[in-house]
Structures are given as structure tokens and as C-alpha cells.
Amino acid sequence: MSVTDETLLLFVDGLLPEAEAEAIAAALESDPALAERAALLAEGRDAAQRAFADTLSEPVPAHLVAAAMAPAAGNDNRAGWRRTGFGLLAGVAAGFALALALPGGEGDGMLTPRILAALDSRAGTVGGGVIVAGTHATEAGTICRAFTVAERAGGMAGLACREEDGWRLRAAVARAGGGGYQPASGVDPLIGEVLERLGAGPALPPEQEDAARRRGWTPAH
């Protein structure tokens, strides 16, 4: 019985109609060369599937997330977050912690008007689900503020630092889950790691935070 590669492929993948599949199965019994081709087809498929199975759960590097979120020229992408991407972004969190330098301010499209409004006010709930968790001064004196955004389908934690021309997003961590983003206690661990790399100290006490706000978030010295 002469069986084409295409037919044998469908047989091995379980895609042949029953009658045809039975005929092939019978032919395999008496045709070692045919059985060998079928075995190779299955082995090749299984090897490829197994080899790449773990790739999906690897954290996606931050620069790729930034590339995918970069605003296209001429588009105004500040309209706000869409929830579509959040579920899968949870697995991306580890990579996101390295988003220290989002190139050319490309991550700034993520700083929506309500986040920007929250960044300029006192710590605490501002409305719109944005909470400023703490204000920190880096080694260089730059003021950075950690914040969280609650979304029904998850949420995000972010760190914005004040540059001369405004707030720059330095890191962002997305979280999936029902009931909105719940910071366990204080700052998200990944945001904490980024703060550490920036040489930032612990959260400023309220009076120093107030002073920084009155200075327009410029360095103290």
C-alpha cells in the first residue's frame, strides 16, 4: 500500500476519517517501512512540541514589552489602559522589574492623565483607582513615586521619577487577578528592587514629601 506523506501525517495526528485511519493502521502492521515513517512523523512532532513548551512561561524581557507598547508615530495612545493584555502580563512581571530605562520615554504613554494627577498630589487615594504608595528620593536627589492602579481585571504597580520635563515611568508591574490590585503591604517587591537600584532610600515621611511637592518635585539640594 502506497501512502503519501500527507495522508500519513493526518493519520499520525489523528485527523483522518475513521475508515481511512483503519486502513492505514492495518497497513502499518505488515509494512515496516511505512511504520517507520509514521514513527518518525510522531517523534518529530513530539520533540518540537516538548522543546519549546517552556518558552511560553519565561518572563518576557522588559525591552520587548516596551517595544510592543511604544506609541506609534502620530497616534495618541494616552487614552488609557485597555484590559486585554493584563492577564498574560502577570507572567511578565519578573522581566518588567528590569524596565529601569524605558527608552526615549516610550513607556510614558502608560502615564494616563489620572495617574499624572495622582503623582502630583499627596499620598493617599485620589480617585480613579490610583494610589500613591510612597515617595522616595534617589541617590541623585531625584524624586520618585511608587503608585498602584486598580483595575477590575487586575492592576498595575508603577514607579515614576520626576525629570526636568515631567514624570517618567521607570518601571511597571502588571498583576492579574479578581478584585483589583491589592498591594500586600507597602511597595511591590519588584518596584522595591528598582528603587534599590536607583539608590533610593525608604519612603519619605509626610513633611518631607510635602516639602518635595512644594518644590515641584525637584531635588532638595
Partner: peptide, 17 residues
């Protein structure tokens, strides 16, 4: 972030694979 970009971010793991 537009829905296009959100879809793109969500697809990143498969694109990498």
C-alpha cells in the same frame, strides 16, 4: 496603550516562541 498594543503585549510570549 491602544487595544492593538495590548494585544501585541499579550502575544509576546508566543511571538518569542
Amino acid at each position: 496603550m491602544s487595544s492593538f498594543q495590548a494585544d501585541l503585549v499579550a502575544l509576546l510570549p508566543r511571538l518569542r516562541r
